[in-house]
Design a protein around this nucleic acid. Structure first.
Lengths: 123, 123, 123, 123
DNA sequence: GTGGTCTAGACCACA
DNA sequence: GTGGTCTAGACCACT
């Protein structure tokens, strides 16, 4: 699993895990019914607490991105990205951040440029 | 003072206060050396605890946006917006939110449109 | 009375008044039994609240620097500077400030230079 | 953690904590990325309220001396002392205190000796 | 366990 | 009246 964590980020670790798995699906690296690594294996690999990884997996399942077969493991859902119910929350976060940025005097063009650069990165 | 609070927002109340005061400065409603409402008056007005409002004012002062004369009140600093040391943090928040949005399958154009609409609002 | 107040300073206004009167005595401008301006006149002159000036005068009298004849006014005491019981407190304030400066990485020489420059100013 | 508090000092408790942590960094006892004690543990240890300790840590973080990972703890920043934005304020406090001391008839040499003795203490 | 937010309320210093 | 400090304690998010 190509997942890297930045412990110094203010973004919760479980969010980083979720985001990176979603990115891998988006990029086609992970396909429907592919098996995810076990929670314990990933926690060991990333040197994280099992609970932290568990929380990420729980969220993904709750959002309809993955499904779990008890005793077998977690797998990518059929229509993972279409199911994803996390989009709304993500959009709201962007709205909040942009509003805060505007209040702090950040120019519109500054943000537009930032968005462009982010979407250029690894597409 | 035209400050409105959304108690149900995930954005901390004191951040909402900070942002709204910054907006008022940006819009020219509040000018250097203008006096802000007293923390007690604002707390009463917004039905908040004094400490919550105080936290907002403390942050603004630490950021160089306002200055406080104990026993007299808080005032807008001479170069409030130039001093503002909160911009960097705000930009970082936008970056994080956009990255998270991208991971969740939000299209670039969707974000660009959102940014445009936010900046059209009251500028 | 040549007293000037800096409303923007973190030093309490009544302390500024006390300090300036003490300086005037130190410089010989005010001599024993000279009459100080009335509290009201000074408050009017400096555009301050009467209570603020009153507090300064009270402190000076309590410290043995001045004496008051009810209905007549306040006067410089015979041995104003020798009597002054405020020295100890002032020394303690310097100690605290220097300790704090040391903690914040200010070099000894920096402070020594500052002290020299202050004592050169108007002596 | 070797932190001692003087409850009877006019220096706010949270300032005492800030100063002592800064001293520990200055002395090399605390190094970049070292973890500070938890605010709860320190509060318990010093018999203080959690919020008082929190205020100290908040200030240190705002000044760029520490960084905080929610849920994990607070740590010394990479360039803690270089970042420290509190130096200016500390210098201003010394200036004010010395001016006040001069007004109260404290001799220059008295202050110079005091500064020397303070810097001899534990350097 | 960690820190983050918020409330309620006391007491003090200053204007 | 103003802001500043401190306490006690609740509730939440994250590890």
């Amino acid at each position: 699993m190509m997942v890297t964590i930045d412990l110094r980020s203010r973004v919760p670790i479980y969010e980083q895990i979720k985001n990176q798995i979603l990115e891998l699906i988006l990029l086609g690296v992970l396909k429907p019914h592919d098996q995810l690594p076990s929670i314990r294996a990933l926690a060991l690999d990333l040197k994280l607490n099992v609970n932290t990884v568990k929380r990420a997996f729980q969220d993904l399942e709750a959002a309809g991105v993955t499904y779990t077969l008890p005793g077998r493991g977690s797998f990518i859902a059929e229509n993972a990205l279409e199911n994803n119910q996390l989009k709304g929350k993500a959009l709201q976060e962007i709205r909040d951040a942009v509003l805060s940025g505007r209040a702090n005097g950040i120019e519109k063009d500054e943000i537009l440029a930032l968005v462009e650069s982010i979407y250029q990165d690894e597409k």
